[in-house]
């Protein structure tokens, strides 16, 4: 709950500040920024699902370059003994065979070879490791509709599960009828178990769907699936730092901006993350769309 509280606190402060001082305003401005050297960007993962796992390789760019990221092609990419092939349709996207799955408790190491990001003619070699953590089975989920005010209303997804006794870190995502609707990292919910470690969790608010987003509107008969990922502490901190650096800053609550961590080593320094995590899903078919809490 620590993160949730922090987010709520930030949200309250934002809303108070910006509603009570109505003379404050925001406007777009032009700023000149310096440039920095190009680095490799890694966005990759392996999970316990049986599927094609991906590693996406791109390059960093100047802050106002305002173009899609440049892909890194022709690299040699492997995860443990599985080698990844570059996709024909999407340059820079490397995929395993579709029958690969990760095992809980195993450590997976990503290696990237045959790249030369700084174009100096020398080969660069990058590596990263992550271990797949355990995750609880979970009992069930429930979906209720909450009306806080006229403007603030949402579907609350509640989880019923027993939290295991060790330190666990979770990521929660939501699917509607098998389509992932929380599809960008800022829509994931991170959670540690510090405040309820080892307890039975009776309907904790873990994710939400907003009636303001067309892809999140629920209708009768929809199947809502909550996906929980058992992640490492380092990946958990990565996601929090990522959201903190992409979520907008406020002099009242933000510390000075700082670079997001990375677990990629080697070469000229890379950014991004290679994660390995376990997956559990719980589903519910919606019969009462506006069920009261």
């Amino acid at each position: 709950m620590k993160t949730r509280i922090f987010h709520i606190v930030k949200f309250i402060a934002f809303s108070f500040l910006f509603s009570w001082f109505s003379t404050s305003c925001t406007e777009r401005i032009d700023i000149d920024l310096d440039e920095t050297y190009t680095r490799l960007v890694v966005d990759g993962q392996i999970t316990t699902d049986t599927t094609s796992h991906f590693v996406k390789l791109t390059k960093t760019a100047d802050y106002f370059s305002n173009k899609p990221a440049e892909p890194v092609t022709g690299a040699s990419v492997s995860i443990n003994s599985f080698s990844l092939q570059e996709s024909d349709s999407v340059p820079g996207l490397y995929l395993t065979d579709p029958n690969v799955y990760g095992i809980i408790g195993e450590t997976y190491t990503l290696t990237i070879d045959n790249v030369d990001i700084d174009n100096n003619g020398e080969n660069e070699f990058y590596t990263a490791s992550s271990k797949i953590k355990t995750i609880a089975e979970g009992d069930s989920i429930d979906v209720v509709y909450r009306e806080i005010t006229d403007e603030v209303q949402f579907w609350e997804i509640q989880l019923y599960a027993q939290d295991p006794p060790e330190d666990n870190y979770y990521l929660f995502k939501v699917y509607i009828n098998d389509t992932l609707v929380t599809d960008t990292v800022d829509e994931y919910v991170t959670q540690d178990d510090q405040l309820f470690n080892g307890n039975y969790v009776p309907g904790a608010f873990v994710q939400s769907l907003s009636p303001d987003k067309p892809d999140e509107v629920l209708e009768k008969g929809d199947v809502v699936t909550l996906e929980a990922n058992g992640i490492t502490q380092d990946y958990y901190k990565f996601i929090i730092e990522l959201n903190s650096e992409t979520g907008g800053s406020n002099p009242l609550f933000s510390g000075p901006p700082a670079n997001v961590r990375s677990n990629i080593e080697g070469g000229n320094g890379a950014v991004g993350y290679f994660s390995a995590y376990s997956v559990r899903r719980l589903s519910k078919t919606i019969t009462n769309v506006y069920k009261k809490p």
């Binding site: 960007v41 791109t58 760019a61 802050y63 960008t184 990292v185 901006p257």
Partner: peptide, 17 residues
Amino acid sequence: TFPTGRFEYDGVIVPVY
């Protein structure tokens, strides 16, 4: 502290400072 670079990760643009 301002960004001097950027990268993409899982659908968002992340600053490099």
